[in-house]
């Protein structure tokens, strides 16, 4: 990948991170009536998905859609206005946060009901087949929604009918406030997909450059082979906080699910952890610290002007 291309991708990652931090600032002030699910830590896959979309490709999202919508819209203002339910919002103030879509940019449906979007995406893929349209449907789901029957049903339908589709499974290990091991037996997605003859791939590096390159290949493979591809993305939803109780004087770990993240602030660092769990930290493997800081300063300034 050319260095200039890498810079653009890094800038996109930073734009998504800083945009969410600015949303969070306003959320903490009580600006929004609609419930927002931030996706701090999910930026790499969102940037990658947006980067590989072509022509009439369609993206189908969940209630946690802020990162993809920011990536597709290319700006913060429309999304912010939607959260304020203003007529100039991305969806004219009619959809709010959890159902936010943006048809003009290929985001055709977002569902707040766990697993609901998977059959709708399968129907879109079926529509592409009927129309003989060479475009792909990309549907995003999570480790919670794969517990729903609609995940199984949709995969069986896609495979049975020779439909192209990318199924992105954001696995953050949590559903609301329960970890996987607190709510169910393990699901081996590789074996599960294999049992249906569905191709399975896994992402865990949080490296947006690698994700873009591989996803573009999977997109082409899916179209050429008329078959779905499951892509599990292991990631961490950042923005956790600690709640002090009698039993936890040092503070009990609260995983971020929705609402304002109390400890996230535009006056603080936009890198949350010095591990690969944080895509901005991963960027440091590709750019000098000063380069990242300069990019971030410039983007933050642009965003603040945009929404002033």
């Amino acid at each position: 990948m050319e260095h200039q291309d890498k810079i653009k991708i890094a800038q996109e990652v930073l734009r998504l991170r800083l945009s969410q931090i600015l949303v969070n600032d306003r959320y903490k002030k009580g600006d929004f009536k609609v419930p927002i699910h931030l996706a701090l830590g999910h930026e790499a896959i969102a940037v990658a998905v947006s980067a590989i979309m072509e022509g009439k490709d369609q993206l189908v999202l969940t209630h946690r859609n802020i990162h993809y919508n920011l990536a597709r819209a290319g700006s913060l203002k429309g999304e912010l206005d939607e959260y304020y339910l203003k007529p100039q919002g991305l969806a004219r103030g009619l959809l709010g946060s959890m159902n936010l879509d943006n048809d003009n940019r290929g985001v055709v449906y977002s569902s707040s009901i766990l697993g609901n979007n998977l059959p709708v995406a399968a129907g879109l893929s079926l529509g592409n087949k009927v129309k003989s349209q060479e475009s792909i449907v990309i549907v995003v789901t999570g480790d919670g929604a794969i517990e729903e029957g609609s995940f199984y049903e949709s995969l069986v339908f896609l495979k049975s009918n020779g439909l192209s589709e990318l199924i992105i499974i954001e696995n953050n290990q949590w559903s609301l406030a329960t970890r996987i091991e607190e709510r169910r037996c393990p699901i081996d997605l590789a074996k599960f997909a294999d049992s249906l003859g569905v191709r399975y791939e896994i992402f865990s590096s949080n490296n947006p450059f690698e994700y873009i390159s591989k996803l573009a290949d999977y997109r082409q493979w899916s179209l050429s082979n008329k078959a779905p591809v499951c892509v599990e993305v292991q990631l961490t939803t950042l923005g956790h906080w600690r709640m002090k109780t009698d039993g936890y004087p040092e503070g009990k770990f609260i995983n971020y699910h929705a609402g304002p993240a109390p400890d996230v602030d535009s006056q603080k660092d936009y890198i949350f952890t010095s591990t690969k769990e944080d895509v901005v930290f991963v960027l440091r493997e590709h750019f000098k610290k000063e380069e990242i800081e300069a990019m971030a300063d410039r983007i933050l300034s642009q965003l603040q002007k945009e929404i002033a």
Binding site: A122, G123, L126, G127, K131, G149, E153, S154
Partner: peptide, 16 residues
């Protein structure tokens, strides 16, 4: 898979 089949119908309709 009736639940999915209803959703699939909606998806196809959305796709024209």
């Amino acid at each position: 898979c009736e639940n999915s089949l209803v959703g699939i119908g909606f998806g196809a309709m959305m796709n024209g």
